[in-house]
Amino acid sequence: MKKFTKIIIIGLLTITLSACNENKTVCDCPDDVPNKDQIVLEISNQITELYEQKIDETVTVTSKNGDGYSLGSGFIFHSDNEFVYILTNSHVITDEENIEVLFSDQIRVSAEMFNKSPENEEDIAVIKTKIDPKYTYKKATLGDSDESKVGELVFAIGSPLVIEFRGTVSSGIIAGKNIRVTDRYFDRYMTMIDVSINPGNSGGPLYNLQGEVIGMNTLKSNPDPNNPNNYLNFAIPSNHIKLVIKSFFDMQSYTQPKLPITYVEIPELTLQQRINYNISDDITSGLFVVSYDSSKIGSPIDVITKINGVEIIRGIDYINELNKHQPGEGVDLTVMNRDGLSAPRIQRVTVVANG
C-alpha cells in the first residue's frame, strides 16, 4: 500500500489510540500500531530521502528578458550522444538566443531551444545543452499521471521567486485531477495541487512518493477576481507531457488538435444555464456546443456524446480522443439535439489546429 494512504487514516488512528490510552478495555490495540507522530516522521523522512535522490535531476533555467532575465525551473529527461534534453515551460523562455541552465552542483552552461509549443497551447518546451563528458547527468522518470490519486502526497523542487532559492522543496497533496483551467496561457485540463509554488517554479517537476515525475508545475490561477489573494496551483499532467515530447522528437513540432467549436461540459451546467440553453433534463453528459464555425462544421451541432464511438462524458474525454488525431484528419461525432427528442446521428468533422 502506498504510504500516502496512511495520511487518510490519521484521524481514525488518533481516535483509536486515545480510546486505548484512556481505557485499555475499550479496544485490544496491537502494540505496533503507529501513532500520528510516527507516521508524519516517516513521511517526512521519505521526502527528505527522495529530495536527496532527485535534486540532481532538476535545474534552474534563465533566459534574457530586457535588461534582466526570466527565471524558471526544469528537469533532465533524455540524452543522446551529443545533447542533454531538459523540460520546462515555454513561458520561461523569453529569449531563445539567450538561455542558461544552472545544474544542482552550480555548474552553469548555455542552452538552446530544441522545440516548444506556444504559451497559449501546451506551454511545454524542450531545451538542450551539449554533453560534458566529465559530468554525470541524472535523468528523471516520467510516471503515469493517470494512476495518481486525489489526496496523494506529492512534492516539488524548483527555484521560486529568486535564483538564490534554487533547489528548494515544497510538499502537499493532489487536490484535483482533470480540472479545466482557462488562463492567460491556455485552456487546458490540469492537476490541481496545494503544493506551494511561485514564479520561478514554472517548468519544475512534481514528484510522487515513488520518485516519479507526474506533472510539471506551471501556473497559479485566480478564478475569482474579487479575491486577489485566492490563487490555486496547477501542474501539467505527465501523460500529456509525454504526448507532446513524442511529437517533438517524431515530427519536430506539436500542434494541439481541436474541433472548430467552443463548448461547455453538460455535467458542469447550473440549472439556470440548462434552462437558458433549453437542454433536456434527460441529457446528463457530453459537451454542449455553444458556438461553432459553420464553414467547417457543416450541419448545426447541439450536443456531442461520442467521438469515433468513444463516449464523451466530460471535456477531458474530448481532449484525450482528439489527441489521437492530427489536424486534417476526420472524426465521426455522435451528436444529438438539445431537446433530446431526435435520435442521435453521426456527423463527420475535420480536426483543425489550435490557434
Rank of each mutant, 00 (worst) to 15 (best):
Y277E: 07
K246Y: 10
M113P: 02
T191R: 07
I124R: 03
S148T: 15
K220A: 11
N198Y: 11
N222D: 13
Q272F: 09
D224C: 04
L142I: 07
I93F: 05
G172M: 14
L219S: 02
N278V: 02
T262I: 11
H240W: 10
D281Y: 05
L71Y: 05
D332W: 08
K54G: 00
Q256F: 12
E122P: 00
K177E: 00
G355F: 13
A175R: 06
I304G: 01
N201P: 08
N337C: 07
I43M: 13
K24N: 10
L102W: 06
L17E: 12
I7D: 07
I163N: 02
R188H: 06
N229E: 15
E57H: 14
S148P: 02
R348G: 01
A19Y: 08
Q46T: 06
Y207R: 12
T284D: 03
V310K: 15
Y51H: 13
P30S: 11
P199E: 04
Y135E: 14
E96G: 00
T94P: 02
Y292E: 12
G286Y: 09
V290E: 08
F248V: 01
S159E: 08
G158Q: 07
H91Y: 05
R274T: 05
C29N: 09
F103L: 15
F75V: 01
Y85H: 14
S104M: 04
E212T: 01
Y254N: 00
L259M: 09
I131W: 11
